[in-house]
Design a protein around this nucleic acid. Structure first.
Lengths: 199, 199, 199, 199
DNA sequence: GATGAATGAGGTTTCATTCAT
DNA sequence: CATGAATGAAACCTCATTCAT
């Protein structure tokens, strides 16, 4: 019935299925049987491709990183790069259900042992690091308000993304998502950038 | 063996133990046995005080709300009220381990049925609503920058709290928590407030 | 709240409640908690009046016997006594829900240990014995068909009561219960009795 | 360890084990653990073959029907068919311990939800219907006593089977089972059939 | 006599994991 | 590589029963 596939293919399928399930249904349904069902194989077969559930969780983290990194990156000036990053993350909540919520949900970190929190922290830090580098460069180029605390601003930017994400999840956005994405970035922008003559 | 306590006391103990466990160890260990162990009773005994796990989860939500609502509230001008609110939330991460991360972690949502997401959303909305009311009043009193988008700002403020929270969890704060709390609020403040003559 | 009552009173209340529950809800709900609820006391209190559930089951048997024995008994000729007995049993199914079904349901015999089947058998034998004695006397008085096998007839009579009972339970009576009771006895009577000139 | 068998085989084994247990030990021991022990597997394994206990109970009903329907059926005249039916049911009590008592014991009814009583009633009605059809045909062919009330007779016949059954269970048969089976049918027969020249 | 908290044993069910086929 | 039966451990929950109050 099911076509036989290489372990490599299966591993990817399984990780994707796991992400989908955790995102849509929560950790409670992150089970071998549920994943197998999603992939279209039997539950025992999962363990032909992964040693145990722990290994699957690690694969989920890897896949998550891949997906996040696959986001479009601008090559323009630092504020433009930041804009593309922020808008892409804001937008992804509408499109890639569950991926972002997974990233910020603390759910995976407990599914692993001691290394769990570290791995998830590392993943989240990549975002922070990117924001920080954009802001640093923008500051050097005089694009930011002069009194701006870069580290405070990093928390502001990364936090706003989360704020948007959870508001969307809660159905608490006061306007359509698309519009709010733009307004959100505008607010961020005028909080950070030096007053400009042209918008 | 174990000292006898009233159901009322036990219910509180159980809810607190549950919060502690979910915060520290994650939903995976949010089990009757684990809670019972923490409280110092047998697992079956849990169900003399709660009908089922679902009811415990609801109690956790209630307790969470209590704890959050217990935060100090200023009676001063709207920006001052906002400051007290934000600083208290930022600070609580250091003090009340796991409580806030629980609030923003999407973990409880899935532990309940259909009402789950609604209840958690409602809890989070109380924060948003408070922030919104402060900002509205501040705007009316001319304390905010004139072009400020209130709804964007709500996401900014509530998001920044989350950003701080997760950065702290990840060990990604570039300075001691106390200092970062202050810098974080300063950044927020200057993003929102009208330029002042005196700081 | 609950008025204090003597153990003797409580024992009767508890046995009655137990009969009611088993009859109406089945052995599955024959639990201390359920009985206590019915009586209006707390579950632990049950065991102030009965050593254990086993003892309650025995009390149920005793009470059952009392109830069955309380049925009206005619003092007329043997066939008349039989008629009163049969009609009373047939009728009781409509009135005393569950009592009869309990008697024939084999449910209690397993709720006790080894003595269970014996006790229930003894209870059922009282009915058989009564029927047998009526038939014997009727035979001696020449009221029965001459070739009638008394022991076969005992099974016929007691069985027909059961047949009626289960048919009623199953909603399989082809006419109203009252009418069927009469027709049932008529059928029995003409199966047993010598042809009569007068009805 | 245990030999592996197909789910189909296991389902049959489990249903049979369940029938055996309920018949011999009562509903109280109708547990997954007990069934598993009987079948020779672990209790969790039961649920690879059945969704839950409810499904097992339904399987028991199906199996019961199969067993009852497997009884020999004569093709002769209606009274002969009735005789074969009655004798086979009377005899089965000796042979198929517990099956009949299960059928008439009301025990399964309560093990299911709302559909329980309906299913059991349906099962019992098949017997009644068979008896009714035999009697109707016999009446048309003039084989029965002229004044016989068919519906009363249905209760008489099906009831007598039950009467015999319970008497046997109670050890209240006054003669060996084999002999009583014959006497029981003779009594029934002369209660129903038109007087014949030849026995 | 009654309460209400606690328990231990046991029941159903889920789930990761193994392994013969 | 895939299946499907089996398992052991653990989860939730029920229940008879005990006992301090």
């Amino acid at each position: 019935m099911t076509s036989r596939k290489s372990t490599e293919e299966r591993r990817k399928e399984i990780a994707d299925a796991a992400i989908k399930i955790i995102g849509e249904r929560g950790l409670r349904e992150f089970t071998a049987a549920r994943i197998a069902q999603e992939v279209g194989i039997k539950d025992g077969t999962i363990f032909r491709h992964f040693k145990d559930m722990n290994e699957i969780t690690l694969a989920v983290l890897d896949r998550l990183q891949e997906l996040l990194e696959a986001a479009p990156r601008s090559t323009g000036d630092p504020l433009e790069r930041l804009e593309v990053f922020v808008l892409s993350r804001l937008h992804s909540v509408t499109v890639q259900r569950g991926i972002q919520s997974l990233l910020f949900s603390d759910q995976l970190s407990h599914a692993l042992g001691a290394e769990g929190p570290k791995r998830v922290a590392a993943l989240r830090n990549r975002g922070r690091e990117f924001v920080r580098s954009c802001l640093r460069e923008a500051a050097e180029k005089g694009l930011l308000r002069e009194d701006l605390d870069i580290e405070g601003a990093v928390l502001l930017v990364t936090g706003t993304v989360m704020g948007f994400l959870f508001a969307a999840t809660d159905g608490a956005l006061p306007a359509p998502a698309g519009e709010m994405e733009r307004r959100c970035w505008q607010t961020l922008r005028s909080a950070l950038a030096r007053k400009q003559v042209l918008s």
